[in-house]
Amino acid sequence: MRRTIRLYRRQLGAHLRAALQYEADFWILIGAAALMQVVGVVFLGAIFAKIPELNGWTFWEVVVVYAMVSIAEGVGSLFFEGTWRLARKINQGEVDYLLVRPYPVTLQVMSSEIGLNGIGNIVVGSILLGLGVARSDIHWSAGNVLLGILLLVSALVIKVAISLGTNAGSFWIPGPYSVVGYGIHQVGELARYPITIYAIGVRLAISVLVPFAFVSFFPVAVLLGRGGSGRLGLLTPAVAVYCVLAARWAFNRGLRRYEGAGN
């Protein structure tokens, strides 16, 4: 286990050093990612200035939901950006090299790139999360703090697992871009807002089919004590376990189909 983590860190570190060669790009990427999160909240602010509630959710409560997605995407980019390079690796036959190295293929793929933009997402997302939580009505008992941490970790795991599982679709659909991964990722943007604003079909799709709502909406509903949604949100850790198993299954099934890229 320690060896696994150490190698993962070293692998990411190598990519970090490579990325830092271009200092201007580093700042542009982080700045742009941060700005993207801020502008999203500016939009929300402009809308909420007219009407203070969205289906019973206050501005700051929606900001918490929004921030959860920002942080989850940030963590995905910063530590697991390689997931998004899988399609190209398959397309170019580069998975061959991964197969002969004594390290899990999944982890080699996931650590094969670093997305510095994730820093912008995480920083702004954390600030928004802090502000939102401070201005929302959450009772912080010791139990709730622990629950909050468990929910946050589970939410991050779900997001990363969904990325891995959907990107594994590239084993079936050839091409240099991750069609399934990218397409489904965009659906996840819907989970930046309380999902009660959507039609029932959309709600089911993002809570059951691809459980993006468990990255943001449901965990937040638990802490805010939102009745039915809150009780469902207690399932978040179980959903995380399910997503990891499903992603691993999809990845391994795909890997068995892999047959290189010719000569």
Partner: peptide
């Protein structure tokens, strides 16, 4: 012509 990575510029423009 001035930077190596375009993605950040692209995002900044979109935002």
């Amino acid at each position: 012509f001035y930077t190596q990575n375009y993605l950040g510029v692209h995002w900044a423009r979109l935002i």
